[in-house]
Design a protein around this nucleic acid. Sequence first.
DNA 1: AGCTGACATGTAAGTTTTGACATGTCAAGG
DNA 2: CCTTGACATGTCAAAACTTACATGTCAGCT
Lengths: 179, 179
Amino acid sequence: MSLRIALLGLLAASGPASGYDLAKKFETSVAHVWQAGHSQIYPELAKLTADGLVAVEAEGPRGRKIYTITPEGDAELRRWLMEHTPSTTLRSESALQAFLVPLLDPRDGVAVLRRIKKEVEGRLAELEALRAAKNAADARSPGEPPNRFGAYALDLGIRQSRAALEWAEDAMADLERAT
Amino acid sequence: MSLRIALLGLLAASGPASGYDLAKKFETSVAHVWQAGHSQIYPELAKLTADGLVAVEAEGPRGRKIYTITPEGDAELRRWLMEHTPSTTLRSESALQAFLVPLLDPRDGVAVLRRIKKEVEGRLAELEALRAAKNAADARSPGEPPNRFGAYALDLGIRQSRAALEWAEDAMADLERAT
DNA sequence: AGCTGACATGTAAGTTTTGACATGTCAAGG
DNA sequence: CCTTGACATGTCAAAACTTACATGTCAGCT
């Protein structure tokens, strides 16, 4: 379900796009919130078309198909946003490692935490770069209200990454005391 | 892979247990890090047994089977912890909703954020209850070093929930300014 | 003219996850 | 004795996801 919604959302927010475009946007924008590769996206777009939630607006060069959201699709999107209680399913391999770290002896545990910390730092840097790019884009069109689409999620990601970073530091310090 | 590791980890940390016990622990401890229902756990235990990573130690009443981790299982677990770079795959329906909120008019957006905030509050309360229970258990066995198994992950969850809570408040305030 | 690399779309096989179905044991209370 | 509810284990079909395979177009460079 969520994949459909993510696709409908991108079409609603950024206008008509091809499967290829949508796959790109998954990498650069929604990725921090929901991930999907093109092998999932193309079939889903076909299903959405069959269900009347999107339509092929035009065909471009190289077999490019441009999809638009239909009014039904828009209604579905809004309904999901307003009514669907998000599942709280969580799955994080990093957190699983963090969970299990006390099984290792402290030296090894610290090494694992250090690696996790590095990954968090990388993610944080990515997110901050995205936000900087967004801010720059907003600054280029003064007068216009800034485009907040995706901005809240970005902010959430940044805050959670910062929290994870502090956690990694404290956890390492704690483990080192036990060495 | 991660499911196996989670099961091996629980067996390594808490000693022999049945599939039923492990399913319970998934609900009350690992759940904040990795989720799985019994319909996934039983077949996986069978596979782990076939692969020699766990073994049936004893059979109790009501067909209860008690599994133990084998030395091979323990080695596998440690290898994964030390060597496996966790995948950064992220999928959060709440974050997806947050991402899409700006598509709604501010009034509706605030309502969605309010709901997300309530869910985060619920989760935070759960995690804090777990931590309180853990602390109480540690206090009951003085002298013993506190059992840190799962504690780091719990701490991470709590910090991230707090960050999400602050985010929700700020995002709502931001949206309300736009009303 | 040929090569490279981004553009563009798909399929297929295999794994993981979900949700429903199915079955049976045992203890405690009415 | 009977019912209820926790204990206990499983299977199955469908959906979602991953990874690899497969094919072809077009622009720009050499």
